[in-house]
Amino acid sequence: MDIRKELATIFDELLSLGGRSSTFTDATPLLGALPELDSMAVVGVIGAIEERFGIVFDDDEIDGSTFANFGNLVQLIDSKLSA
């Protein structure tokens, strides 16, 4: 499974980015940099990740820095999937 590709699709779909997420790299800043990503959208993205990958995040697994950039989020999913 290509986590980066799946995750970019989630962002594109939920935030209606019109394909912009295909240029995301691990260094791409998200929260605070992507105007479409407000706190409600963050919750939507977390839910979509959970449903798509079949994982559940606990409260203490996600903090603001998780959404600081694309790579942090990829890393978190990767560690959940291999746990």
Partner: peptide, 14 residues
């Protein structure tokens, strides 16, 4: 999730 920002201190604590 209100007032979430990109810091490590910010949480979505249910």
């Amino acid at each position: 999730a209100a007032d979430l920002n990109a810091s490590e201190a910010a949480r979505i604590d249910t």
